[in-house]
Simulated scan of single mutants.
Amino acid sequence: MARIAPHAGPPDAVTNCLLLRADLRNLFDRHLLWLDDDFTVRVATSITDATYRHWDGRLLHLPLDPADWPDPESLRRHRAARCG
């Protein structure tokens, strides 16, 4: 499980977590994988391995209840951290 924001409210709140396999979590934590505002997965162009490139442009599978979706503001801050 990847935490979107390390200190945003309860650390394991469903809106602050993404269920990712270990290698994708590592990319997320290193800001080489992120989500756009519409929950599209993006992979840094520096990642050339086809194992990971195929995720770029795919939509995240979201919970049925929008109240359980990842927090958009935390995702924006995560994206901003990769650029900053």
Results as ranks from 00 to 15, higher is better:
22 A>V: 06
71 D>S: 05
48 T>C: 07
74 S>Q: 09
25 R>E: 06
33 L>N: 02
37 D>V: 05
61 H>R: 15
29 D>Q: 14
16 N>L: 06
30 R>E: 11
64 L>Y: 11
48 T>G: 08
49 D>H: 14
67 A>S: 15
67 A>T: 09
23 D>V: 00
42 R>Q: 14
71 D>P: 01
74 S>R: 08
66 P>E: 13
43 V>Y: 00
53 R>E: 05
32 L>V: 04
74 S>D: 06
60 L>A: 03
17 C>V: 14
57 G>A: 10
18 L>N: 02
50 A>F: 07
35 L>W: 04
47 I>H: 05
23 D>P: 00
51 T>P: 00
37 D>Q: 12
42 R>N: 12
51 T>N: 13
56 D>R: 08
65 D>L: 14
67 A>L: 13
42 R>I: 02
19 L>S: 13
63 P>G: 07
69 W>K: 04
64 L>P: 04
49 D>S: 14
66 P>D: 12
17 C>P: 01
27 L>G: 01
41 V>M: 10
61 H>A: 12
68 D>Y: 14
73 E>K: 14
55 W>G: 01
17 C>H: 07
58 R>Y: 05
41 V>E: 03
20 L>F: 13
42 R>G: 02
44 A>T: 02
53 R>Y: 10
39 F>T: 01
71 D>K: 04
69 W>L: 03
20 L>N: 05
23 D>W: 06
36 D>E: 15
70 P>C: 09
55 W>Y: 15
37 D>I: 04
50 A>G: 03
51 T>K: 15
40 T>N: 10
44 A>L: 06
19 L>R: 14
64 L>M: 11
62 L>W: 14
19 L>E: 08
28 F>W: 13
16 N>Y: 09
34 W>S: 01
21 R>T: 03
70 P>R: 05
24 L>Y: 13
34 W>M: 04
38 D>R: 12
42 R>M: 11
73 E>V: 10
27 L>N: 01
34 W>V: 00
63 P>T: 06
71 D>C: 08
72 P>T: 06
37 D>G: 09
32 L>Y: 10
17 C>Q: 14
42 R>T: 03
61 H>S: 09
38 D>P: 02
58 R>N: 03
40 T>D: 10
49 D>W: 11
19 L>W: 15
55 W>C: 00
49 D>P: 02
66 P>T: 10
63 P>F: 14
46 S>C: 07
24 L>M: 14
50 A>Q: 09
23 D>L: 02
63 P>I: 07
51 T>E: 12
51 T>G: 07
30 R>S: 12
62 L>Q: 11
48 T>A: 13
32 L>F: 11
37 D>F: 10
52 Y>G: 00
33 L>R: 04
70 P>Q: 08
69 W>T: 01
27 L>I: 03
23 D>R: 09
16 N>I: 04
46 S>I: 12
50 A>M: 10
61 H>G: 03
33 L>W: 07
20 L>Q: 06
46 S>K: 13
37 D>C: 05
47 I>W: 10
34 W>Y: 12
40 T>H: 13
21 R>P: 00
72 P>L: 06
23 D>E: 05
58 R>F: 03
47 I>E: 05
42 R>A: 06
17 C>W: 09
18 L>G: 01
26 N>L: 08
34 W>F: 11
67 A>F: 10
65 D>H: 15
22 A>Y: 12
62 L>D: 03
36 D>W: 12
59 L>I: 05
18 L>Y: 03
25 R>V: 00
21 R>S: 02
70 P>I: 03
18 L>M: 08
72 P>N: 08
28 F>H: 05
47 I>V: 15
